[in-house]
Write a protein that binds this DNA or RNA. Structure first.
Lengths: 125, 125
DNA sequence: CCTAGTGTATCGGCACACCAATACACTTGC
DNA sequence: GCAAGTGTATTGGTGTGCCGATACACTAGG
């Protein structure tokens, strides 16, 4: 599950780890209550420092994806289906708002962004 | 034109300067051949180091927005209307592609992004 | 020419993100 | 209880982006 970690990538290792968990949860491979690898186990497995794994897990906890219980382990938090769906739409909105702000920063209009999205996502049903 | 520069902002000063020029050019306030403030003049006006202004101008030059001529000054480069329009669409595409990459990084689908954009931009004709 | 004004180049400090190392505190299971 | 395994906290090293300082090279105008 954590096979591909690139230490030379510009995206930090802790982000790569957290992203793996995110997509695994989003894809349903990990469900509420499932245990994640322990900080040490994952760290030695990835040839990485435990603190790096901790940072990844803490980010996930801040976003409500997992819960860290001292002495016990780290587990993906149980979320109802509609809560999860709401989280997805909220994340998407944050992303889009941030992009729109960047667009106006560059002198682009919302219409420019919309047509660009239509261009990048042609497969529309 | 450069009245509002926030040195405590997380976005770097050189980016703030470059952005000002970008929107001024996009809005038509600056046209091809117009001279920008000299590196030193703008630097002292903003209470900023000349090298910071240089970095902003170099970024603009890399993007083809301006041309720096040693000993002469910095001028916005003359671009045909269709060239400018092509630049806009290219910039918008870059932005959207980058956002889509981030979205998949978070386990979101293109459909999530599209519906989020529809939600954020309701005024559509 | 040559001076004043322009961009160019290089160095250095500062802050911060990233990550390794190490010692500490807690929970579980026997 | 207590040992093994878990998360927690602190410290420090390394790299890099940001920006200030200073000296250099070129171009215009008189």
């Amino acid at each position: 599950m954590f096979s591909r970690i690139d230490s030379r990538s510009p995206v930090p290792i802790y982000a790569q780890i957290a992203d793996r968990v995110r997509v695994a949860v989003a894809a349903g491979e990990l469900r509420g209550g499932d245990a994640l690898p322990s900080v040490r186990a994952l760290a030695t497995s990835l040839r990485v420092n435990p603190a790096t794994v901790v940072q990844a897990y803490r980010d996930l906890e801040r976003d409500g994806i997992v819960e860290m219980r001292q002495g016990a382990g780290t587990f993906v938090s149980a979320m109802g289906a509609e809560t999860r769906s709401r989280e997805r739409t909220a994340a998407a909105s944050r992303l889009v708002r941030q992009m729109l702000a960047e667009a106006t920063r560059l002198g682009l209009t919302p219409a420019d962004v919309r047509s660009a999205l239509d261009r990048e996502l042609p497969e529309e049903k």
